[in-house]
Amino acid sequence: MALIDAVARLGRAAIGQVTGMGRAGLMLWGALVAVPRPAKGMPLLIKQLYVVGVQSLIIILVSGLFIGMVLALQGYTILVDFGTEESLGPMVALSLLRELGPVVTALLFAGRAGSALTAEIGLMKSTEQLSSLEMMAVDPLRQIIAPRFWAGVISMPILAVLFTAVGIWGGHIVGVEWKGIDHGAFWSILQASVEWRQDIVNCLIKSLVFAIVVTWIALYRGYEVVPNPEGISKATTSTVVQSSLAVLALDFLLTAIMFG
């Protein structure tokens, strides 16, 4: 009997998961198929770009700088033993472009913007602002979800590129300014090993995929929130947990496809 119970539990969990994914898909579908209305949609999008993108700038830039600097410092101490400290440039640049740039940006974004989106929409739902929109014959998916989704999808690749650029600059500061690696050698070796198609395009693709997933999870968690304070706090937590896990798992998958 215990076995049958376990199977039933598994089945129930699976059905729940699939139903949830279906509902999330419907939500996104409803938000995105709506005919765009440039005159009304644009101000909403710009406002969300500010909230989602501009307000995440500080944390992204500061983290990027420090991660680049730490990477260079650690790399230097290892490379200097082999006398190949000139290779610090490609090490920092490739780590950032291929992995850390898109991944860390996505994780920070989930914590900074994703949780805020969930909480905001959850609060809108629990204060009946979403119902109120519906009563005014305005589709909340179009008014609330769509601009936030696009803002997330546009912002994250920009943030990832900024993160990477600032990180490489941080690597330059530590490697060249502090540890005294030759400026020319640092950059020429770096330039020789970074490839446009392999590294930069893949960085953008990864970042775009993470952007879609993180923003989608955040919006869905907010939209499906149990409308009370406990529900909102739970939804916010699960946004961060689920999107972080999703980002790391997808990163493995994408890396295997791109570089495997």
């Binding site: 809108m124 009946e128 602002q129 119902s131 109120s132 519906e134 009563m135 005014m136």
Partner: peptide, 15 residues
């Protein structure tokens, strides 16, 4: 719905 409207308990003003 354009012909009806609702006053929600919380007011539900857009914050």
């Amino acid at each position: 719905r354009k012909r009806m409207s609702m006053l929600f308990q919380s007011g539900a003003l857009f914050t």
